[in-house]
Write a protein that binds this DNA or RNA. Structure first.
Length: 1051
RNA sequence: GGGCGCUUAGCUCAGUGGUAGAGCACUUCGUUGACAUCGAAGGGGUCACUAGUUCGAACCUAGUAGUGCCCACCA
């Protein structure tokens, strides 16, 4: 049965993928040669709720090319598959689904029920992206599919195997114990939509139209001062008596939390009022807060008024100033970024704040955090509403700075108007990358990785070349970020994620003076002892903080106990109690009954619920903290698995440059911090896949290309080939469907070349097995060409130049095999001798097999189909041996001869075309003065030349016939006597055009060859090449000039 | 403000010192026994600009002009 004319991708792809998977072709170590070295790629885990987009398709195509290539080479390969739990993204999706289904909200159903829902959703949708990756042909080892939340408490066994959770927890505990993780109250980026802290990287700064308002902060007690402005020459430009200080702000609502006004110490304008108090011009008049005017290096005297209000709890700059100056930082907003409505009435709070500003009231962090300085009338307002209200109120009171404005009415009369000074200016505003709402700097307790402590080895690893980042520009970006790295906020106020393994105890004292450590639920440790009938003989004042508490990292009166499991936790609590009792001078024996329960009935439950009433930190870890452990976590760490032994450190990481900081840098840091090894040798970074015009794909623009639609329409191979062809190092990735169609056509071309072979009995005796030792030039030539291309492909892939590999294969298969070899073989296969037929069939079979092998990593489906359909094979193509032949297969003589033949056919065709010889017309050819090599080449390939040149007869002549079209070849000339068919003028024009081109080339070549400095400085082979080139051009020029002269004789 | 790129044919892009390339688009011709998802031929480029280095520059250096991305605290 003859083959179909085209490859049916839709039918074949699922069938082939299934066959590979069923046969276990992708499992770790499949097709590995004995003693093979390992080659491992970790998939960048897509979000478990995700669907495949073009970025995934591109990224995974490159990984698959590498892994299939290495697998065929016989390496012990592993492409580790898996998905990421994607904290915020997944929680967002599930919450939205609950809302759509009109089910109780997250907060209504509570943490456990909600997590149950998330796991259900994971079970439903988690397979989606995996199946989509399979459609792309990704040859991951799915039997090892990992998940970043596997092994977490409450993880249903059917949706997540493995134990990533333990690795994450273990790392947290180890880093905590090494002091690389700490907790503290810091100003962090707060996302009011998700009500969680986020890291710097999750903030997008966007320029938006904003306003800058200018307000007067009146000096306390009606004081005045001489305000003097001078120009550069020191001349006074303004002098007036002021009873206020002018402040500019883009965020008036934060004025409510001001702790001071700062000016630069060198700013003479404000020197008279340094240390005085001024009034925040908002809120009820009788309770206006007074704040000090201080100096700090931060304000720029040349910007605005030179005076800056300091709101430590709502601005990152102000935070630094406030810390330096001991200025209280009043938090104004709740978790939704609405103005706080809790706490005591404003009058009460303001009075305390007043005392603090006056220096008569001591304060600490906890006390400040509890205070609500939002005036009663603003409480509960959204921050933007509050802003409008504050502006309106200040303006109404006349405390806005006013400016003159000249207006002209209809009659051309000018009038001067005073209006509030509000500048319209673009400001950079921070937005949450997921929520898209304005991020609020918030003062909260969070967990941080002390990146300074672990960044060094990560920098060194790239600097000394242990880890290579490609393209190289990525290394510069990497260095720049790591050298200026900030602490990494890793706690998130979410529910979906790895809950932080820290339990808190509050050392407190009861009325009886005996309670020592309790959780938030009030369950008290001491009561447990009393239940057990043990009397405490004297009161224990454990609420007194001690060096012991410091040692355990007390923060805001809370003692954290970080532990990876219940035994550790019990031991830590016990250790704390023992030490504290000793410090108090009590016998540890008091708590001897606090025996560590080595064999609890249900340890998990005990652990999860906390022990002894301690409360577990409700927060979860940043998703990137866990994905930062992807390399070791998926290989089974902390167990010393054979996979870990074999595949770690992994080989290549292929990922988008947009997650260089999020993921790549952190993986390097964390792997080095945890196991003191680099996670991979090479990082291949690529850009964002864009549309044909270079625009970012987005739903709103409507230019999103769905890879699955592309696969449906053109097949996975076409998409993959396009991806490979786009993947130049550091190149732009513009996806054009026309291009995809072109590569689909390429597949069809290959298909039909094999179809031709099949029709010509190439596979009649089964699979092509051995490479023939060719007698005939055309076969020797194509075998040499194949050998060259194998070297090119390997070299390109070694250097991650996917586009070079793809375009070399394209040019070879289409341009050499199909356009020339198949055509040249036709006279041999159709009319040749038995020997010619047999050898050509064998050669063609071998060459096409090589094409399938070399193309397989890029186009796995169509090549596998052709491989298995043409003949019975020992192995599937996916496991075929990758060839190693090279230059030794190139036959220089055959090369020369075939190139001469090809050039001749080209010249005949070109002349025919330009002379408008009808395509169907067979013409006579005259050969003139051909040298021996030419004679031989012509004679040996005569049938091909006649067929492809559409020549019917060949004669020899001593001289060029008149009125003929001239074709100059090395070693002689040919003529096409076409009197009556051709136009003499046209031939003249053709020759002149060729001569013109030649003259230009010859001019350049002569200039070089005749320049003594060229001969002296250039490499000998370059000089030699130029000389040969010149000689050949000159020979051609002479022939064409002679032809032109002959034409002149006629005309 | 800092950093990193980019500028080559109508379009999208390769090309890192030695005769300017590909695909698509365009023009002409073609139902030649693998393929019209095809074949043959052809047109089309001061390699952004300027100045250097070099025997020789699209490529190296410096600057200029566009343009894109990342980072950044100017209230």
């Amino acid at each position: 049965m003859p083959m179909e004319k085209t490859f049916n991708a839709a039918e074949a792809e699922p069938r082939l993928y299934d066959a590979w998977e069923t046969a276990g072709c992708f499992v770790a170590g499949a097709n590995a040669k004995p003693e093979a070295s390992s080659y491992c790629i970790m998939i960048p885990p897509p979000n478990v709720t995700g669907v495949l987009h073009m970025g995934h398709a591109f990224n995974n195509t490159l990984q698959d090319i590498l892994i299939r290539w290495k697998r065929m080479q016989g390496f012990d390969t592993l492409w580790q598959a898996g998905t990421d739990h994607a904290g915020i993204a997944t929680q967002m999706v599930v919450e939205r689904r609950l809302a759509e289904a009109q089910q109780p909200s997250r907060t209504e159903m509570g943490r456990d029920a909600f997590l149950q829902k998330v796991w259900e959703w994971k079970g439903e949708s988690g397979g989606t992206i995996v199946n989509q990756l399979k459609r792309l042909g990704a040859s991951c080892d799915w039997s090892r599919e990992a998940f970043t939340m596997s092994g977490a408490p409450a993880a249903p066994e059917d949706v997540a195997t493995g134990n990533f959770h333990d690795a994450v927890i273990k790392v947290f505990v180890e880093m905590y114990n090494k002091g690389q993780i700490y907790r503290g109250k810091r100003l962090v980026n707060w996302d009011p939509h998700f009500e969680t802290a986020i890291s710097d990287l999750e903030v997008e700064n966007v320029e938006v139209a904003g306003h800058m308002w200018h307000f007067k902060y009146p000096l306390a007690g009606g004081e005045t001062y001489e305000y003097i402005e001078k120009n550069e020459d020191g001349e006074v430009t303004l002098r007036e008596t002021r009873d206020y200080i002018s402040i500019a702000t883009t965020r008036p609502e934060t004025m409510l939390g001001d702790g001071a006004v700062a000016v630069h110490p060198s700013d003479a304008r404000y020197a008279p009022i340094i240390g005085k108090l001024c009034e925040i011009p908002v809120g009820p008049k009788e309770h206006r807060r007074l704040i000090p005017i201080i100096t700090d290096e931060y304000p720029d005297p040349d910007f605005g008024s030179g005076a800056v209000k300091i709101t430590g709890a709502h601005d990152f700059n102000d935070y630094q100033v406030a810390k330096r100056g001991g200025i209280p930082m009043y938090n104004l907003m709740d978790t939704k970024a609405a103005m706080r409505a809790d706490g005591k009435p404003y009058a009460h709070e303001a009075a305390i704040a007043q005392a603090i500003a006056a220096g008569t009231q001591a304060f600490d962090e906890t006390m400040i955090a509890a205070m609500n300085l939002v005036p009663d009338e603003y409480r509960g307002l959204d921050r933007f509403e509050a802003r409008a209200r504050v502006v309106a109120d200040i303006t109404a009171e006349g405390l806005a700075v006013m400016v003159e404005k000249t207006i002209t009415d209809e009659d051309g009369v000018e009038a001067i108007l005073w209006e509030p000074f509000v500048e319209n200016k673009p400001i950079m505003q921070p937005f949450g990358d997921r929520s898209k709402v304005v991020i609020e700097p918030m003062l909260t307790d969070q967990w941080f990785v002390d990146t300074d402590k672990i960044v060094g080895p990560a920098l060194d690893a790239v600097k000394n070349g242990d880890v290579k980042i490609m393209p190289e520009s990525g290394e510069k970006v990497y260095f720049h970020w790591l050298e200026n790295i900030e602490p990494w906020c890793i706690s998130r106020q979410l529910w979906w994620g790895h809950q932080i393994p820290v339990w808190y105890g509050f050392p407190v004292t009861t009325e009886r003076g005996q309670l020592m450590l309790q959780g938030a639920n009030g369950q008290a440790l001491i009561e447990r002892f009393e239940e057990q009938g043990r009397e405490i003989d004297k009161p224990i004042w454990l609420s007194d903080l001690s060096p012991i508490d410091e040692e355990f990292g007390v923060s805001a009166g809370v003692i954290p106990f970080c532990a990876g499991d219940q035994y550790e936790l019990q031991k830590k609590v016990r250790e704390y109690l023992d030490k504290k009792l000793a410090w108090l001078g009590l016998s540890p024996d008091v708590f001897s009954q606090l025996a560590i329960d080595e064999n609890p009935e249900d340890p998990t439950q005990l652990f999860e619920q906390g022990i002894y009433g301690l409360e577990r930190d409700p927060d979860v870890l940043d998703t990137w903290f866990s994905s930062g452990l992807w390399p070791i976590g998926t290989l089974g760490w902390p167990e010393g698995t054979t996979e870990l032994e074999k595949y770690f450190p992994t080989t290549t990481l292929v990922t988008g440059q947009d997650i260089l900081f999020f993921w790549v840098a952190r993986m390097i840091m964390m792997q080095l911090a945890v196991v003191d090894q680099i996670p991979f040798d090479t990082v291949y970074l690529h850009g964002l896949v864009r549309d044909a015009k270079g625009k970012k794909m987005s739903k709103s623009t409507g230019n999103v290309i769905d890879p699955l639609d592309i696969i449906d329409e053109y097949g996975a191979d076409a998409l993959r080939f396009t991806n490979a062809a786009m993947a130049s190092l550091g190149g732009a990735l513009k996806l054009d469907t026309q291009r995809i169609a072109g590569y689909r056509n390429f597949g069809t071309k290959l298909w039909n070349a094999v179809r031709f072979a099949e029709m010509n009995e190439v596979y009649a005796n089964g699979a092509p097995t051995t490479r023939p030792d060719p007698e005939f030039t055309v076969n020797a030539w194509i075998i040499g060409e194949t050998a060259k291309i194998r070297e090119v492909v390997d070299e390109a892939l070694e250097q991650y130049r996917f586009n070079d590999a793809a375009s070399a294969l394209y040019a070879f298969v289409w341009g050499k095999v199909c356009d020339w070899y198949v055509e040249l073989s036709k006279p041999l296969l159709l009319d040749g001798s038995d020997a010619e037929k047999a050898e050509t069939r064998a050669a063609m079979g071998w060459v096409l097999d090589q094409c399938l092998i070399l193309l397989h990593p890029i186009m796995p489906f169509i090549t596998e189909e052709l491989w298995t359909e043409t003949a019975a094979r020992d192995k599937m193509l996916v496991h075929a041996d990758w060839p190693t032949y090279g230059a030794e297969l190139v036959n220089a003589q055959a090369d020369r001869e075939m190139n001469w033949v090809i050039d001749l056919i080209d010249a005949i065709r070109s002349a025919r075309g330009e002379m408008h010889v009808p395509a169907g017309l067979r013409i006579p050819l005259v050969q003139v003065g051909l040298d021996a090599a030419g004679q031989q080449a012509f004679a040996q390939n005569k049938a091909m030349i006649l067929k492809l040149g559409r020549v019917d007869t060949v004669t020899e002549a001593a001289e060029m016939p008149k009125g003929a079209v001239t074709i100059a070849v090395p070693g002689g000339s040919f003529a096409m006597p076409l009197e009556g068919v051709i136009d003499v003028g046209e031939e003249k024009a053709r020759l002149e055009k060729s001569l013109g081109k030649l003259a230009k080339e010859i001019g350049g070549l002569r200039g070089r060859v005749n320049n003594p400095k060229f001969a002296a400085s250039a490499p000998p082979e370059v000089v030699e090449e130029a000389r040969e080139n010149l000689a050949a051009r000159e020979e051609e020029e002479a022939k064409l000039t002679a032809a032109l002269n002959r034409l002149a004789e006629i005309a």
